[in-house]
Design a protein around this nucleic acid. Structure first.
Lengths: 209, 209
DNA sequence: GCCAAACCTTGATCTGGATCAAGGCGGCTG
DNA sequence: CAGCCGCCTTGATCCAGATCAAGGTTTGGC
């Protein structure tokens, strides 16, 4: 899709770097590929209430210009490796290479589909449906060392507080629903953060959709 | 941005039509411009719970291919006038005309910003903040016959049930919050559907952000 | 290894918004 | 114009999830 000259130019302009968990990613006029790790996007109300409005998992694109007036913040949830390019270069290449433009558009549209799925969860699902849907989403996005036909295990990249801010719940409710799933034999929890789904089907049945 | 030949081709391929309130708009492989009226996008859970995940007001774009597996439905809320074009033509022109591609991308990105604003409302705002935010959003999007410096009046294009499905509330709660805003002198309500905002500032102060 | 801080779990109680219930309007239709 | 039907409002009660409270567990620093 890109020609040799373009690839060379990209290679020259690209820069790789790694940031630690907790680092805020400034809008520095670049697009980045997330090579590893997880980034959260948070929207904040004036009194401090927070809502996580999206995640970027490897190998996602990241770094679009938000409407400057919307207070959205991007922050690394884990150690994150990025490969970034000046936005000007990508935008110029997209003009010459329709396929690249399509990729940018399709990426935005699939983020939109996801945002709308989560609107539905936030507006119409119960707490336990929200937690089940969340676990399934993470399982699908976190590359897992341990994966068999129907059972998956992975490390949660989020604290209970972040899960709560994503699902529109409190940390206590998140904790209780996780405990309930464990008591029902649907998941196992090791070390607070390590989750094993006994069967993805059992979880899917609790997502409400 | 488009040359004369392209404009002529578009004009030839375009078709205008009008649909009544309540009509479902099928995904018929076209892009449309909404010339007048309001369209709602609804996502439905298997047991019938609904969430409205977006609106299209004039002069919005409409009619992108949803991920086919997501059960999203587009339906006219009012009488709607559309001007539609085969998707193939627009997509081909976007390849030749970067500016058109940019418009499609920017449109998707602003829909994404809006979806994320509503995620925040659904997850973290109280019922009365949700209703206030909703009224303000409608006021900004419905072209109003009656508009002065600080006061606006308009007809709600939604029933109480639709407002509830958008805000993740029940119709009773929506009704009560509207009554409270009226009792507090922030809005006036005529004929159930006609709303006057005494001052946009008073409403803004109740949106939580 | 001990301590403190950060994070998580669990229990008790409270409450915002849901649910249940009972009318009140318009707006059609005959 | 009566009667019906679809919407909306308001009141009473209930409950899912919030809040308040009290430990438990893990991590990291010294």
């Amino acid at each position: 899709m890109l020609n040799a000259r373009q690839l060379a130019e990209l290679a020259r302009a690209s820069s790789r770097h790694e940031v630690l968990a907790g680092t805020e990613l400034p809008d520095d006029g670049t697009y980045s590929n997330v090579l590893s790790g997880v980034v959260k996007l948070t929207r904040i109300l004036s009194d401090g209430r927070q809502q996580i409005v999206g995640f970027h998992f490897a190998p996602d694109f990241l770094g679009r210009p938000f409407e400057p007036k919307r207070p959205i913040k991007a922050e690394a949830l884990t150690k994150v490796a990025l490969c970034s390019f000046p936005r000007t270069i990508i935008d110029r290449m997209a003009d010459d290479t329709p396929e690249l433009g399509h990729r940018l558009l399709n990426h935005a549209l699939s983020e939109l589909d996801e945002a709308r799925d989560w609107m539905t969860a936030l507006g119409r699902k119960t707490a336990s449906e929200k937690v089940a849907s969340f676990l399934l989403m993470i399982a699908r996005n976190v590359v897992s060392a341990n994966r068999s036909a129907s059972s998956v295990s992975f490390d949660l990249p989020l604290s209970r507080a972040d899960i709560a801010d994503f699902l529109g719940l409190t940390i206590e409710t998140v904790s209780r629903e996780l405990s309930r799933l464990r008591a029902d034999g649907v998941i196992r929890i090791a070390n607070k953060r390590h989750i094993s789904l006994e069967s993805t089907g059992r979880i899917e049945g609790r997502c409400g959709d």
